[in-house]
Computed example of a mutant assay.
Amino acid sequence: MVTCYLRYVIDPDKVVEFEHYAKLWIPLVNKLGGQHHGYFLPSEGANNIALALFSFPSLAAYEQYRIDSFKDSECMAAFDYAKQTKCIQSYERSFFKPVFGN
């Protein structure tokens, strides 16, 4: 299993728009074979950092998700929403191997 960690720099004046974007993606990741663990919006501290975590059975499954997302009309609409609202200024992606308790 691999977990994708996304760290977003968002426009602090567009948190509502980013939250809408996040709510679009949660079911899309799940539809395309992943397990979304949620988005985390600014609360205390930095007002322009948001996070997302989601997992796939393997890095190959994640890569297939990326390919499929660019063919899916709902995913493309979500990408377009972020572009139109300019709620995301930048993002970085990292991958982790999760460890769960018994």
Score class of each variant (00 low, 15 high):
85 T>A: 09
26 I>R: 08
23 K>D: 15
88 I>G: 09
45 G>R: 03
69 S>D: 07
41 L>Y: 08
44 E>F: 13
102 N>V: 02
69 S>V: 00
79 F>K: 06
62 Y>V: 01
54 F>D: 04
31 K>T: 06
74 E>I: 03
51 L>T: 03
1 M>W: 09
99 V>R: 07
13 D>R: 14
80 D>V: 06
18 F>K: 01
65 Y>H: 01
3 T>K: 06
79 F>V: 08
98 P>F: 07
32 L>N: 00
87 C>S: 12
72 D>L: 05
45 G>E: 06
5 Y>G: 06
55 S>C: 10
102 N>I: 11
60 A>L: 09
83 K>L: 11
88 I>W: 11
26 I>G: 04
63 E>C: 09
43 S>P: 01
30 N>F: 06
94 S>I: 12
12 P>R: 07
14 K>Y: 12
74 E>W: 04
3 T>C: 13
60 A>T: 08
58 S>V: 04
24 L>T: 11
83 K>F: 01
73 S>K: 08
32 L>Q: 01
42 P>Q: 00
95 F>S: 13
12 P>A: 09
15 V>Q: 00
77 A>N: 04
63 E>Q: 14
76 M>Q: 15
76 M>P: 02
17 E>H: 09
43 S>H: 12
30 N>Q: 13
95 F>G: 12
3 T>Q: 10
26 I>D: 09
65 Y>W: 05
53 L>W: 06
30 N>P: 04
9 V>E: 11
18 F>Y: 14
12 P>K: 08
100 F>D: 05
75 C>N: 00
37 H>C: 07
39 Y>L: 02
21 Y>R: 06
21 Y>S: 04
28 L>Y: 02
28 L>R: 02
91 Y>I: 08
87 C>I: 12
73 S>Q: 07
83 K>H: 13
14 K>H: 10
52 A>I: 02
77 A>E: 10
64 Q>T: 02
92 E>T: 14
35 Q>L: 14
21 Y>A: 08
40 F>G: 04
77 A>S: 09
83 K>T: 13
47 N>R: 15
28 L>K: 02
85 T>M: 12
31 K>H: 12
90 S>D: 13
82 A>F: 05
40 F>Y: 15
87 C>P: 08
82 A>E: 07
39 Y>S: 00
9 V>A: 13
36 H>R: 02
83 K>A: 15
10 I>V: 15
59 L>W: 13
61 A>E: 13
36 H>T: 12
30 N>I: 13
69 S>H: 06
36 H>M: 12
43 S>E: 11
78 A>R: 00
15 V>P: 01
28 L>N: 08
67 I>D: 05
26 I>F: 00
23 K>G: 11
41 L>S: 04
37 H>L: 10
63 E>I: 03
62 Y>E: 04
68 D>C: 01
95 F>W: 14
94 S>G: 14
69 S>Y: 01
92 E>G: 11
84 Q>F: 02
6 L>R: 05
82 A>D: 01
76 M>S: 03
60 A>C: 10
36 H>W: 08
